[in-house]
């Protein structure tokens, strides 16, 4: 079968420094220009195309990159990723309405809160085996939502309203309906996240995660401090989710517990697996498709999610490793171990 991933990697590796810069800049330019293509075939018939680009597409991409650190890189099944998104969003909501801090000042606080809760959840949960980790994280996601739903300080089911927009920087103003400004902001965050993940993957942490994913016991015996690196993966994943949450809250200006259901966790997980776990480009592609598809097929109206479910089943059966799977060589090692 034609392997898009290897083909892409081959082209990239055969380029010199200048060629790579040209490709990268070109790709970023095309992606950055997407908001201007509203009139073309990309248009979403019912929903506002530019707002779909911000949420769900760009937001899903950011979260999928974060979740990919946890699931794709280190093989830890996290079913409650939405919790970190919610914690980021509620940090923004509370501090934005109760204090004078603006979005850019709250962003690091939100990220820190998400990382902190990542530690609180991770330290007890990561001692457990895979399937139990899944249910504990799932429970954590629900607990965060239920707490938000029942605590008066968090606005109960009404949530938090009147969250301020980010203040302008460099003369760029953030208005509620200037979707493309938010889109570009998210794009910068996405590029930062990609950069972070790529740097880490090539270094000690990346190798530790890889060894944990393939065989945790062997990694431990060879001296990899597996627990430490698992917590690290968890916390880094959480930080990306927290950042996405802060941006989400200052974009929608209104958050409620209903925005943070288990369905979001599952959708982000689907993005990661659908696109190709462990390969960041696959994950991004998966998030773009799954974020875009439900709005693109809105003409099916009622049957929209039904078709979406069918697509998931069919795709997984045809390409169980996702659209752009990780390198074949790694897979061969895993297969050999398993048999």
């Amino acid at each position: 079968m034609f392997n898009l991933r290897d083909k892409g990697a081959e082209i990239w590796e055969n380029q010199g420094r200048i060629g790579r810069i040209v490709i990268a800049v070109g790709a970023i330019a095309i992606v950055a220009a997407l908001p201007f293509m509203g009139g073309t075939f990309l248009n979403t018939p019912v929903a506002d195309y530019e707002s779909v680009l911000v949420y769900p597409i760009a937001m899903f991409v950011l979260m999928a990159i974060g979740l990919n650190i946890v699931i794709g890189k280190s093989g830890l099944l996290d079913l409650g990723y939405v919790a970190f998104f919610a914690i980021g969003a509620y940090t923004m909501g509370l501090l934005g309405t109760k204090t004078d801090l603006n979005t850019w000042e709250i962003l690091p606080i939100g990220i820190a809160m998400a990382m902190f809760s990542g530690i609180i959840l991770g330290v007890p949960a990561l001692k457990l085996r895979g399937d139990y980790l899944a249910i504990i994280t799932l429970g954590f996601g629900e607990i965060v939502r239920i707490v938000a739903l029942n605590l008066g300080a968090l606005g109960r089911s009404e949530g938090i309203q009147g969250i301020p927009t980010p203040p302008g920087i460099f003369g760029i103003e953030y208005a509620f309906d200037s979707h493309r400004i938010y889109y570009w902001t998210l794009l910068i965050l996405i590029l930062l996240a990609i950069w972070m993940v790529r740097r880490l993957s090539a270094r000690r942490a990346g190798r530790a995660w890889e060894s944990i994913r393939q065989d945790e016991d062997a990694a431990e015996l060879l001296g990899v401090p597996t627990f430490k690196y698992k917590v690290w993966a968890f916390v880094l994943g959480a930080s990306v989710g927290g950042a996405a949450g802060v941006l989400y809250a200052s974009k929608t200006l209104f958050i409620a517990p209903d925005n943070f259901t288990l369905q979001i966790s599952i959708l982000i997980l689907a993005c990661v697996v659908f696109g190709g776990m462990g390969n960041i480009w696959g994950v991004i592609l998966g998030a773009v498709i799954l974020g875009y598809l439900p709005d693109r097929i809105r003409f099916l109206s009622e049957a929209r999610l039904l078709v979406f479910g069918l697509v998931l089943v069919i795709m997984m059966n045809l390409r169980p490793d996702g659209i752009l799977p990780r390198k074949k060589r790694e897979k061969a090692i895993v297969k050999k171990d398993a048999s």
Binding site: L305, L306, L312
Partner: peptide, 9 residues
């Protein structure tokens, strides 16, 4: 993921 798809259907 396949199971999630079936559940949705």
């Amino acid at each position: 993921i396949s199971a999630i798809g079936v559940s949705m259907v």
